[in-house]
Design a protein around this nucleic acid. Structure first.
Lengths: 235, 235
DNA sequence: GCGCGACTGAGACAACCGTCACATCCGCCG
DNA sequence: CGGCGGATGTGACGGTTGTCTCAGTCGCGC
């Protein structure tokens, strides 16, 4: 797949003519990375924009003690690290490929020229930033209010909605993550994920099929558990 | 103070001519609210942009159980709720005045016409969004990695840097918050804030002067406590 | 089919924290 | 001065969770 046709699919460049797109493609660098390749780390100065062609990129923060918190993950057609391009600041987080991924890199200068001359691009970028901001509010709220089991239930329910496929007795999902990677997304420890999975299993909300696959009989009911302590509060 | 001169001070409208600014002012609504006035709540459709002239506005999320998590607070000269203006989505959080505040309200349509015709405004807005995003990453990381005492230490250190004034024996700050309001900012309970304050006091990192004021002998040292568990991790 | 290494589940334990209960303090108003 | 109400400090208690440890399981290559 060539760079132009990948860029063509992005909402970001929807308004581009073929020649503008070809010019952009010619100045971009497409490269395939193996799994576990660190694209950049927190605090590093920003060199440009990455766009995911295939694969998956995880954006995360690391604690001094070595723990990790995933902020978001981006798949095909999604931009990564557009924020620092605007305010000129450093990357606010680190990024790593979760699997073999093909990425298109647009150098900083090239991209800036682009969006300055192109209000549609600026608009699209603002919308991306907005989406990111909303997601981060969601992450923050989840961390502040819900226990591990509830966070897991919420994650699984959302994952099922996005990537699940109907199966006998409910919706089936393939996690494609180890328990430890899951713990990074939920901001907890590997062992707590195991315990939380057990809890959900015992309540009949999920059935584990091997290590990777999970069957969810009722996604809506799973979501319900994600709102614990839902008692009235008087004041 | 009239609306025009307030707007004039905003970096957002720095590039405006006097007449453009006057036009904007004439279509905006300035109003003073008492403390504790709810401007909008999570999920509500967006009606326009607020700009803080005087006072302070708190943006927060509420849990079903009645707990609260502050996402950020904005003071004079800062815009509130610019995000939903762009993607057309609902407010992602709620907002309330913390004290008596004068706010300028710019209706949605008026504002959109504004930034579409004015690349400088769009730029400024994107930078605001970026700042917000960075701050939220910080909040998320803090919640995920640090215990209450460390979060409090970090909060006080940052507050001292922003609003502290030099005094005999260190930097003095006036919190202007009850312990409960503090607990909302830190994502914890009122009692835990009391206990964490006691901890910091016992370690000699702070001295409490009455209920509202705190003396910090060494802000840098206070920051140090905010990074607990800083042990090397081998792998 | 054997063995290695990564992944997973489970138990024990302590630390942290939210909650309840209650005593105390403080400002304020009568 | 008295008292009232909100704010604060403190102790007790239990649930949640991070950490340590170890055993069991699975996949994969040889």
């Amino acid at each position: 797949m060539d760079t132009s046709s990948v860029l063509r699919q992005l909402p970001l460049f929807a308004s581009f003519g073929d020649d503008a797109l070809a010019r952009l493609a010619s100045r971009s660098i497409a490269r395939t990375y193996g799994p576990g390749h660190v694209l950049f780390t927190t605090g590093e100065p920003c060199r440009g924009l990455y766009v995911v062609a295939t694969g998956r990129v995880r954006i995360y923060r690391t604690s001094p003690a070595g723990r990790e918190q995933v902020l978001h993950t981006e798949g095909p057609g999604r931009p990564v690290a557009e924020l620092p391009l605007f305010d000129g600041g450093p990357y606010p987080a680190s990024a790593i490929t979760e699997e073999e991924s093909r990425l298109i890199f647009v150098p900083r200068d090239e991209f800036q020229a682009l969006y300055r001359g192109n209000p549609d691009v600026a608009d699209a970028i603002v919308r991306e930033l907005g989406k990111r901001l909303r997601h981060l509010v969601h992450v923050t709220e989840t961390l502040a209010f819900r226990d591990v089991a509830a966070r897991l239930a919420l994650f699984l329910a959302e994952f099922a909605q996005q990537h699940g496929r109907p199966a006998r007795g409910g919706v089936e999902i393939a996690l494609d993550r180890t328990r430890e990677e899951l713990s990074f997304e939920l901001g907890t420890a590997r062992e707590s994920v195991s315990r939380a999975l057990k809890q959900l299993r015992e309540k009949g909300l999920i059935t584990t099929l091997g290590r990777n696959r999970i069957l969810i009989p009722d996604v809506a009911k799973l979501r319900t558990l994600a709102r614990p302590g839902e008692r009235p509060h008087y004041e």
